[in-house]
């Protein structure tokens, strides 16, 4: 475990905490894409099927449980909690996310490290995570105005991806035979999706103004 990986995991955790805080404090999920949250829940459930078969460390096991539980809790809030549910605007959240699920699974059937149940679901989760932010980015772009906590949520998620790339560069330089094409290529694609958002995030930060995305 290097400092970039740890910082990446922590910003990932922070992004989820920011989202939970926003939903809890405002009893509202306005500006939050339920579809992106459901995709993340699927991502974690599919990737951590190895929770009971491969033990890496107490840290890994603990974080896996936290990610699964928090992603399910967020989906539960948006779908079931009476007050939060009312604030969900399904007319803004129209991305056809099932296409992402189908395409990711199809890709995983062809591109995987080994043709086993766990490995195919692992590859599927990597591909799906790479594109899971799309419904959220489209929703933000359609609504134009982004409230502070939602903006910070997406910012921390993007930071997590950027730090994972630094982690891979570090591991590539320090570990013999560090090659993970599936994770690294998908990770770079995923990070690139945030480029546009980051551009406007930094402009609003520099000008000390509210984050606005162009239509």
């Amino acid at each position: 475990m290097n400092i970039f990986r740890l910082a990446g995991d922590m910003t990932h955790l922070l992004s989820i905490l920011v989202l939970l805080l926003k939903i809890y404090a405002t009893k509202s999920c306005s500006g939050v894409s339920r579809k992106t949250q459901e995709l993340y829940a699927i991502v974690f459930l599919a990737r951590y099927l190895d929770l009971f078969t491969d033990f890496i460390s107490v840290y890994n096991t603990f974080m896996k449980i936290v990610f699964i539980a928090s992603s399910l809790a967020i989906v539960w809030c948006i779908r079931v909690h009476p007050m939060v549910k009312r604030s969900y605007d399904k007319d803004l959240d129209t991305f056809r996310h099932y296409l992402l699920v189908a395409a990711s699974f199809l890709l995983a059937l062809f591109l995987h490290e080994k043709f086993t149940f766990l490995e195919i679901f692992w590859a599927f989760s990597i591909y799906l995570e790479a594109v899971a932010i799309l419904p959220q980015l489209v929703l933000l772009q359609r609504s134009g105005n982004v409230d502070n906590l939602t903006g910070q949520y997406v910012f921390f998620l993007g930071a997590y991806r950027g730090l994972y790339i630094l982690n891979w560069i570090y591991r590539y330089l320090t570990e013999p035979r560090f090659t993970r094409w599936i994770a690294c290529v998908s990770g770079v694609v995923q990070t690139a999706l945030y480029a546009d958002f980051f551009y406007y995030y930094f402009i609003s930060w520099k000008n000390n103004s509210k984050l606005k995305l162009p239509a």
């Binding site: 990986r5 995991d9 890994n60 896996k64 080994k114 994972y164 994770a183």
Partner: peptide, 10 residues
């Protein structure tokens, strides 16, 4: 020696 690949990242 073929090493079993373990996904050690989250």
């Amino acid at each position: 020696v073929v090493e079993r690949k373990i996904h050690d990242e989250l």
